[in-house]
Design a protein around this nucleic acid. Sequence first.
DNA 1: TACACGTGGTC
DNA 2: TGACCAAGTGT
Length: 383
Amino acid sequence: MIQSRPASFPSEEGLSLENGREASFEGVLAQALLAWYERHARTLPWRIGPKWRRAGVKPDPYRVWLSEVMLQQTTVKAVGEYFAAFTARWPDMMAFAAAPEEEVMAAWAGLGYYSRARNLVACARRVAEDYGGVMPRKADELVKLPGIGPYTSASIAAIAFDEPVPVVDGNVERVVSRLFAIDRPLPQAKSEIRETLRPLVPQDRPGEFAEAMMDLGATICSPKRPACALCPLNMMCRAHGEQREEAYPVKAPKRAKAKKFAGAFVALRDDQKILLSRRPPKGLLGGMSEVPTGPWQESPVARMPAPPLSAPWRKITPQVSHIFTHIDLKVTIWQAALPPETPAPEGFWWHDLENLKDAGLPTVMAKIVEAAIPGATKARAKR
DNA sequence: TACACGTGGTC
DNA sequence: TGACCAAGTGT
């Protein structure tokens, strides 16, 4: 169901352009947004700015894909250095497709949602094998690839290949739900928002339109205290007309986080090597390296879980707390020093503390090591 | 449809 | 402090 246009917008009869052409609501909105974008576009490493775009320059689909996947549920600031490191190390799709999965997982460490890294590798290999290393151009083709869903497929198709499809991310959900005062709660309202946006997409500049919508949401139409005075669409916005901007988008209530508790073991050999293992490929932190942990349980850790090897374990304080999206985890840490000749048990290995960065520990694991061995995660590898 | 899936920043 | 949020996807 498509919402009616804002009541504050003039009737169509009252609208005419200087050249005598009829101005549609859709056209006026797109023009106002694109004009704003030409002045206020954010400069981003994976983007071709409006000036160069007008000169016919298009962004590299590989970089668009990589950035879009990194940006899923992740801030621009957090992505910045990862994008630079990835593109320096793997400059194109074929180079990336040839990368060992474990190297990609380690390079991704700290960015979160680790299935994205695994799917990135799977996607690159599929593109290399099935498409000769050339990214498909259509959203309905892209959406079949691993790690590429409705948002990412549309964004790549629009931004890299100028396919006029609606691109709906969290920013756009907010902008569109305010523009049309859509009061159905998210995520149920997703399809209504997409279909409301579809006729607004200009056929000639869909990529810039998508980027402009997201920039507007990120910089003007913010979740709290939006800067409506600076918004190029304020006269067309129903939420603004109602002075109820922050009432949109309506969101369904979310569930409380589960509390969980675990014990962890920091085993440090006297030759400055730490005992690590790899987590199972699926599930939380799937495929990432870790310090050995006991079971994650519902009740506080009362006694030491079964350790990976026999050692003079002693409990250290304080505990480490870590908040995941859906789990509030408290970790009790046991530490032990071992002689240099100590062998690693089956499935474990000793990792040089000096080069801990290379181990690719997810943040929660790095926090555990840091609590036991202050400074360990900040050491840089020697040249 | 609803839930699993990370992390860091903001108010 | 704790709740919310940030360019979502897979199951």
